[in-house]
Amino acid sequence: MNHLLKTVAYRLSLGLLTLVLVSIIIFSAVEMLPGDFARAILGQAATPETVAAFQREIGLDRPPVQRYLRWVGNVVRGDFGQSFASRVGYRRTVASLVAPRLQNTLFLAAMTALIAVPLALGLGILTALYRNSWFDRAVNAITLTAISLPEFLIAYVLMLFLAVRHPIFYSLATVSPDTPLLERLGRSVLPALTLTLVIVAHMMRMTRAALLNLLSSPYIETARLKGLSRSRVILRHALPNAWAPIATIVALNLAYLVVGVVVVEVVFVYPGIGQLMVDAVSARDIPVVQVCALIFAVTYILLNLTADVVAIVSNPRLLHPR
């Protein structure tokens, strides 16, 4: 047990270190701005005084280390600063922009995960069970194609056939905070379906690969030679040992959702954080971009960390050290 705790603690501290380093990289975004950036934001007509005032406002007059510590301190307390779109008499805090969007994105991601994870695991187990059958080949060919397709193609094909030509679902996923839950679910069907198709392919193929990998081990051959049925070998002998890789696969693919969400939100005009980030990048609204990048990166790192910890904890060799 002690050994296990030590391994987990080591992995967690590595994760924490990564988080700190990544926050430094994202913070340095402001450092790397080209010299004429203030002018680009304020317009060519800006006087030197306005430029200086703007630079003071975003804190460029203090040393970087001091500013980094302040930024981290503020972020931890939930104060993300002001959007560059703020003007006198029109204050937009980054937090007020991000908070509702983040909820929407989490809603979409949760909905996708609830559909995709059981579906992918089921398909993965079935294809491993009936490997090299026509079913396996068909699922493999379809998922290999789905992996190669750009997200926006899947999104527009679904939109064309399931919303425009056959109006079954809403083509645009415009939801607002006061949309009732049922309508919200209905409007999010197509984006969720697109994301599902994107990650099921990966998840299913990796589940199948993890199972097949196990099936080549000697103890499985023994079980076979004992005369056990194929399904019993997979479900009772292989699967319990496959949970660790499968948990890793699920976490990795949920992390992949983080990236997929950007394009899909833009296609369906879903008011989530991905769309916010794209808009902020076009407007070069750096504080908003930084916070969005930080949220995406932290989610990604935490999911990967979870995958690692699950893999460590579910390893029986670490649970019962000699």
Partner: peptide, 21 residues
């Protein structure tokens, strides 16, 4: 490389594009 790969590539690219245009 470990640290650079800890940020999703598309997100990293978006952030860098917002800086350099």
């Amino acid at each position: 490389v470990d640290v650079l790969m800890a940020i999703p590539q598309l997100i990293f690219a978006l952030m860098l594009l917002s800086i350099f245009g």
